[in-house]
Simulated scan of single mutants.
Amino acid sequence: MRDLIDLWVGAQAWLFETLVSPILFKYGLMAWYEPGYSAVEFVMLGVVQIAVIAIGMRFFERRWPLEKAGEDDKLIMVDRVYTMLNKLGVIPLAIFILTYPLVQEIELTVRTWGYMPPRLERLLPWIGDNALVSFLVYFVLYDFAAYWLHRGQHAFGWWWALHSLHHSQRRMTVWTDDRNHVIDDLIITLALVLFSQFVGVQPGEYVVILMVGRLIESWSHANVDMSFGWLGERLLVSPRFHRLHHALSTPTERHIQDHNFAPVFPIWDILFGTAIYDEKIRPTGVDDATVDADNGRGWIAQQATVFGRFVRALLPRFSRRASAQ
């Protein structure tokens, strides 16, 4: 294991010194030196995630597909673009550049107030003796925050205008998890970063938590009918559990998508009354023709169209404010 870690760190250092550092030096961006080094590791982790999805998870989809291959398979291509852009850091880098000054300003303000993030090791000293236990505790906290953010994506009209892009896919696969609008990604990223700082998650821990969480979420979108058993289904989100969340609404199940929100641990849905467990196989997608039309568009067209939906969802708010003044 030590040799593997040394190999990883060596590759990160080589890539940074060979490709990134000269660019930062040439353009006078040395203030980004430390974030740039971390970004190299983020991209490396992205390559690992793509390999796990393309080789490991796709094996199960090809071997035991829930929906057989058909004409709709072309709809999956754009989801692969989303995965590549997100996992290789293109979208996260843009979001990082936008949010970095804001996060730094918030950190400075908090320090000025004399507030120090409450590391759980101070409250529960015994978890500091076990790295795995510490990771799991922070991972559970991260998932708890992600659960409520996900509910917010469905609860607010302006947020649903963005998140509906994720639900519009009729052919859900392991590539679907990253199918999000960049503004939606920005909001979620900023919220989770601020939450992780508030509870005291260290940057190195956060990167690992994010990678493991996203891999599990990719698997939960898999085109397989796989159950973890009665107990397992209540411990970890499975493709069957999450597929119900993407189910196409019908007159008899109008609010079916307002269930099974949890990204990783179903306990949140169980505790807060949003869990549904049944054996019924439902088609996925949305019952709104305007949103369903996302399936015929490429990445750029989807981003532009969804941004238009987002603005229109906000306009009534602006109109009410203008009339009240």
Rank of each mutant, 00 (worst) to 15 (best):
L7E: 09
P35Y: 10
K280C: 01
Q197T: 05
G232R: 02
W219G: 00
V40P: 09
A51N: 03
S238R: 02
L45Y: 08
Q302M: 10
R240N: 08
I127T: 10
P251I: 11
D129L: 07
F307R: 01
I97T: 14
L186Q: 01
P203N: 09
I50N: 00
S319F: 06
E34C: 00
L190N: 01
S238Y: 02
A51W: 04
T290A: 14
M84Y: 15
G36S: 12
F60K: 08
A54E: 13
R309P: 00
Q153H: 10
I53C: 09
A31I: 13
I281K: 15
V311L: 13
R297Q: 10
L4H: 00
D177R: 10
H150Y: 09
R179W: 13
I276T: 09
R317Q: 07
I183F: 15
Y138G: 12
D294W: 01
L88W: 10
G114R: 05
V103T: 14
R179S: 11
N223P: 00
R80I: 13
W175V: 03
F25T: 15
Y206C: 00
H246F: 02
E253M: 12
A39E: 12
V9C: 01
P125C: 05
Y100D: 14
W113H: 04
M211F: 06
N223V: 02
G70S: 14
V137R: 04
D73G: 02
Y82H: 15
V306K: 05
A69R: 11
D287L: 10
D258N: 12
D269S: 03
A301H: 04
D184C: 10
V81S: 09
S319T: 13
A145G: 06
I76T: 15
F139Q: 08
M116R: 13
D72Y: 03
I76Q: 13
G128E: 07
T274W: 07
Y142S: 09
L215W: 07
R119G: 15
L88S: 00
S218H: 15
I187C: 10
Y138T: 03
A39M: 14
F261E: 02
V199A: 07
I76V: 15
R254Q: 11
V48M: 11
K74R: 13
A313R: 08
S21Y: 08
R63I: 01
